[in-house]
C-alpha cells in the first residue's frame, strides 16, 4: 500500500493516460466517420446531383419557385438570379440561370450552399445540375452565367404551393476567420 513508488500504480497511470490520448484521437476519428455515415445514408448530399424518381409531369398543379441569392464574408461578387420566380409543374425539368460577377481584380473562390423554405420542400426539390455541386473560382472582373437544372417531385405535399430556393455564396480561400 505504498504510494507513488508502487509499480502497480504507475502501470495503471500509464494505461489511463494512453486511454486519454486515444480518446482525443477518437474525437478526430469521428470526423471521417461522420462524413462516411452521411455519404452512405445520403443525409448530407448537397454536393451531389439528385436522382429523379417519378418523371411523370403533373399538369394539374402549379408550383411557384422563388429564387433568392446572397453572398457572405465580404465575398466581392454580384450574384443575381436572371428570373426572380418561375411557375412550374411538378415533374417538369426546369432550367434557370444566375449571373455572377467578380467585382474585385483578384481571383476568388466561392462555394454556394442551398437552403429551402419551407424546409420540408428540400427532399422534393431535385437538382440535376447545379453550380453549387463544386467550388467556383472566378478570375478578376470575370462574369459568368451559372445554371441550375431542377425538377420537383410530384409527391410534394398538396399544401406546398410556393418554394423558395435560397443560395448563399461563401468565400473559400484561406483561414475564414470572421467576426
Amino acid at each position: 500500500m505504498s504510494q507513488t513508488s508502487d509499480p502497480g500504480n504507475r502501470q495503471i497511470l500509464r494505461r489511463l493516460l494512453i486511454v486519454a490520448v486515444m480518446m482525443f484521437g477518437f474525437g478526430y476519428a469521428l470526423v471521417p466517420f461522420y462524413e462516411k455515415i452521411c455519404s452512405v445514408t445520403g443525409i448530407n448530399n448537397m454536393m451531389k446531383p439528385d436522382v429523379m424518381g417519378n418523371t411523370q409531369i403533373d399538369k394539374t398543379r402549379w408550383i411557384t419557385v422563388e429564387f433568392d441569392s446572397n453572398t457572405r464574408h465580404d465575398l466581392p461578387w454580384d450574384f443575381i438570379p436572371e428570373k426572380k420566380k418561375v411557375m412550374v409543374h411538378p415533374g417538369e425539368l426546369v432550367h434557370v440561370q444566375y449571373r455572377v460577377t467578380n467585382k474585385s481584380a483578384d481571383k476568388v473562390a466561392g462555394q454556394a450552399i442551398p437552403s429551402y423554405s419551407p424546409a420540408l420542400a428540400a427532399q422534393y426539390f431535385k437538382k440535376l445540375e447545379c453550380f453549387c455541386f463544386a467550388k467556383q473560382t472566378m478570375g478578376g472582373q470575370e462574369s459568368r452565367v451559372m445554371p441550375v437544372v431542377f425538377a420537383i417531385e410530384p409527391s410534394l405535399p398538396k399544401d406546398v404551393n410556393t418554394i423558395t430556393l435560397s443560395y448563399t455564396f461563401f468565400m473559400v480561400e484561406g483561414a475564414t476567420k470572421g467576426g
Partner: peptide
C-alpha cells in the same frame, strides 16, 4: 477519462477552424 479528451478535440477543431484555415465546421469549406 473517456470523454474529456473528446471535448478537448472538439474545441481544438474550433480553434484550428478559427485560426489555421481548417474546415471541420465551416460549411463554405
Amino acid at each position: 477519462i473517456a470523454v474529456m479528451p473528446v471535448l478537448a478535440g472538439a474545441v481544438t477543431m474550433v480553434l484550428t477552424d478559427r485560426h489555421f484555415g481548417t474546415n471541420f465546421f465551416n460549411a463554405a469549406g
